[in-house]
Design a protein around this nucleic acid. Structure first.
Lengths: 129, 129
DNA sequence: GTGCGTTATGTTTTTTATGATATAACGCTA
DNA sequence: TAGCGTTATATCATAAAAAACATAACGCAC
């Protein structure tokens, strides 16, 4: 069973397995800040994806072993920093309520994954001596 | 007075000031792992530099507001993961003792800064829409 | 109106990382 | 041998992050 990763190591991109035999891996992570505060990061964008997938904030949080309150805080901050909501929610109503991505939310998700993909490309082409 | 940075945000490279007016910044950090454990990172390599500069582990730690025991643990782990010492130390002796970088240590430092510089280049050329 | 599962929000607890503290050993100097 | 500032090492305390927990409010369905 693999040792659980430390928080700062989670969601990190790694150089490809071709370097594995050396036991030496280049790792890294990127994120976006707005006005000095974390806006989008790997975990946050996965959360956006899970919300789109599950339709509720509670189920999204459960699906990634995140506490509901933490997920709620992240969404609150993302919405606030974006200036407009990335996620809209409803308390009560049919099936108790729910949450979904706005077009801005989908765009943010796509843009971030685009950046991550570019970064992964950069990492992969590094040769570690 | 600027808000102190959270641990996971420290030592992060940022996209240049040309993006600052948008309030949106791409940030990132990289590190090297060996056998799944952190081997070299920004803070660790700064520590190597300070050791070379000050000649003792104690002074190096002081100079970067790091506890001696933490610095000692980092050096121990770096030496161990490298397979050969990056830092050699002497307890006692002229002036009480000291520490210095081995050629391997100097090389590790230089290689890491080279990687960081390349990464900074990559970050700088990202255009954030 | 009751029940249901959700969102909303605050408080408490746990975990993790790091710094602080304490003590011993080391090896030169005088 | 005594003194010095260092390395060596373990333990304790603190701070930050995250999870856990506890309620309340919401709005549809019945």
């Amino acid at each position: 069973m693999p040792k659980p990763k430390a928080p700062h190591e989670r969601n990190a991109l790694a150089s490809g397995p071709e370097h594995k035999e050396a036991g030496l891996q280049l790792k890294g992570r990127i994120w976006l800040e707005k006005d000095g505060q974390t806006f989008l990061s790997w975990g946050r964008v996965v959360l956006l994806e899970r919300i789109a997938e599950h339709g509720t904030l509670a189920a999204a949080a459960r699906s990634m072993d995140m506490s509901y309150s933490h997920a709620w805080n992240l969404v609150k901050q993302m919405n606030q920093l974006a200036g407009k909501p990335l996620v809209e929610k409803q308390a009560g109503g049919k099936k108790g309520g729910g949450a979904y991505l706005t077009p801005s939310g989908e765009k943010a998700r796509d843009e971030f994954w685009r950046l991550v993909k570019q970064f992964q490309g950069w990492v992969d082409q590094r040769k570690i001596k």
